[in-house]
Design a binder for these strands. Sequence first.
DNA 1: CTGGTTGCAAAACCTTTGCAAAGTC
DNA 2: GACTTTGCAAAGGTTTTGCAACCAG
Lengths: 141, 141
Amino acid sequence: MSAAGQRAEVLIRSLREQGQRVTTGRRAIIEVVAANADLSAEEIVGFVQRDHPEVHSSTVYRTLETLEEAGLVRHLHLGHGPARWQLAADPSYRLACEGCGTVQLVPRVRFDEVRRQVQAEFGFAVAFQHFAMTGRCSACQ
Amino acid sequence: MSAAGQRAEVLIRSLREQGQRVTTGRRAIIEVVAANADLSAEEIVGFVQRDHPEVHSSTVYRTLETLEEAGLVRHLHLGHGPARWQLAADPSYRLACEGCGTVQLVPRVRFDEVRRQVQAEFGFAVAFQHFAMTGRCSACQ
DNA sequence: CTGGTTGCAAAACCTTTGCAAAGTC
DNA sequence: GACTTTGCAAAGGTTTTGCAACCAG
């Protein structure tokens, strides 16, 4: 099984262990998110409906919310436009270019020192994974 | 005249110098933004309509866009919810708490070193003023 | 005067919600 | 069988747009 498939199985098991029911739609949504980071809800709907045309977009929104409450996925904002979804275990922060739209992944640990400094100076715990850092990539400056 | 009133006069002059027309609505909108940082468009509508009930919300949206293109104001995102408007000259970054909603202002210069490091390591110019840093304030951690 | 600007209404965009029917455990 | 989850349709919040009337320069 693919790495994404294995990740999906872990999430499905965790979901059931939390007392949630596992339906065809939920399974398909989990598989799509595990295989493709940073899709919008409507993009997830598109992927899911290729195999399961009966799954409605409201089900996708509700399932994503359920999965987020279960601590399995998380949404983030890469700039204007719809929220994007990723696995909660995703270890990267995003640098989103407002010029060309490209998104650069950077290891979370590379910002540990920044977070420590902001905590020390302002008493504030920055959560860089909810709102991406936006700006200009090297090509667009 | 108040400091906010003086700032407003500067913006109005600049707007006219750029070939834009100065209408009653535009003048009122500029005065509200100059006097109150981080209002939403609908909040600006409310303030403006106290003195000028005929000014429509679509005019406010269009004017804010015009002023932003003219480099006089800017919108920012403090988290979920509508965009917030501030003077382009505003010298502070925002730390927005996702627990209690409080917004902590920090001098832009305190992040110059962080921006320099991100530029050096990743070739990316972060624009911290467009999307606020979100997280948890000391009281909410 | 004349082209930029406005008020109004409608639509666009993304997301949430109420409800009866269907599905999971 | 009990209770959760779903599909559908409708509405929600914020912002944008088309158009004729209006007004600043």
